[in-house]
C-alpha cells in the first residue's frame, strides 16, 4: 500500500574490542512513508548501534540496508554523506549544535551543503522550520544562549531543513525534563500527522513510545516485538 522508505535485511554487527561480540543479530524490519516508529529496549541492547547503521554513519555491518529503494552497501564515503544530507535528518540526545554559528546558520548549514536552493531561499526555509518549532524569535541568538529544550528544537529544525525522507532520533528527549520532552514529542507527532513525515525514534521512555504508531522492542541485539 504505502512506500517502503527504509528496509533493513538481516543486519548484524560485531564489535571486536575487547572480544568479538555480536551486538546486532540479524535484524530485519521496514519503515513506511509517514510512519512514526519508536525503538525501545534496555540500555546496552544495541539501539544506538542499530541507529548509526541505519543512518549510514556506521558502514561496518553485515546484511542489507535500503533507503528509498537504494542499497547502501558498498557506497563510497562521499556518497553516503550525500544521502545523509539529502534524505536523513538526525537528532541526537545531546544537542550538538555548532557554537560558532547562530541558530539560523546552524539550521541552514545542511541546506547550504545540499545547494538545492539559493542561499536566500535556504534562509527563508530555515525561518519556516524554526517557526514550526516555535523558536523563530531565537534565530539570531547563539546556541549557548539557549535552554536545553530550545536547543533540541533547533536540532529538530536543522534535521528538517532538506525535507528528509526520514528523521532518526537517538533518545532525543533523554536529556530533557518532563515538560520539554512532551513539547518535543508533540512536535514529532505534528510532523508525522500534518507533514506525513516518517520518524524512527529510539527512546527508553515507555510513555513516549506508547503514543507512537508502532513500537519495535529490542533485547540483546534482537527484535523481540514489532
Amino acid at each position: 500500500m504505502k512506500d517502503k522508505i527504509l528496509d533493513a535485511l538481516k543486519i548484524s554487527k560485531y564489535f571486536h574490542d575487547p572480544a568479538t561480540v555480536k551486538v546486532i543479530k540479524e535484524i530485519s524490519f521496514s519503515v513506511m512513508k509517514g510512519e512514526f516508529v519508536s525503538i525501545i529496549g534496555k540500555s546496552g541492547c544495541g539501539k544506538s548501534t542499530l541507529l548509526y547503521i541505519l543512518s549510514t554513519m556506521d558502514t561496518s555491518y553485515e546484511g542489507e540496508l535500503f533507503l528509498d529503494g537504494q542499497s547502501m552497501k558498498n557506497r563510497i564515503e562521499s556518497d553516503l554523506a550525500k544521502v545523509r544530507n539529502e534524505k536523513i535528518g538526525f537528532v541526537f540526545q545531546f544537542h550538538y549544535l555548532l557554537n560558532e554559528f547562530s541558530v539560523l546558520k546552524n539550521v541552514m548549514l545542511p541546506g547550504l551543503k545540499l545547494a538545492k536552493f539559493t542561499d536566500k531561499e535556504v534562509e527563508q526555509r530555515a525561518y519556516d522550520k524554526l517557526k514550526i518549532l516555535g523558536i523563530q524569535s531565537e534565530a539570531l541568538k547563539y546556541p549557548n544562549q539557549l535552554s536545553g529544550g530550545e536547543k533540541q528544537r533547533v536540532a529538530i529544525a536543522r534535521s528538517l531543513i532538506n525535507d528528509p525522507l526520514i528523521i532518526m532520533g537517538d533518545e532525543p528527549t533523554g536529556n530533557l525534563d518532563k515538560k520539554n520532552s512532551e513539547v518535543v514529542f508533540h512536535i514529532f507527532q505534528e510532523l508525522a500527522q500534518e507533514f506525513n513525515q516518517s520518524l524512527l525514534i529510539v527512546t527508553h521512555d515507555n510513555e513516549f513510545a506508547q503514543k507512537t504508531n508502532r513500537i519495535i522492542e529490542m533485547e540483546d541485539g534482537r527484535i523481540i516485538r514489532m
Partner: peptide, 16 residues
C-alpha cells in the same frame, strides 16, 4: 571534534 562530527552527520563529506 564535536563540530566535525555534526558536520559529517549532517552530510558534509570527509573531503569537505
Amino acid at each position: 571534534m564535536d563540530s566535525i562530527a555534526i558536520l559529517k552527520a549532517t552530510g558534509f563529506s570527509g573531503k569537505d
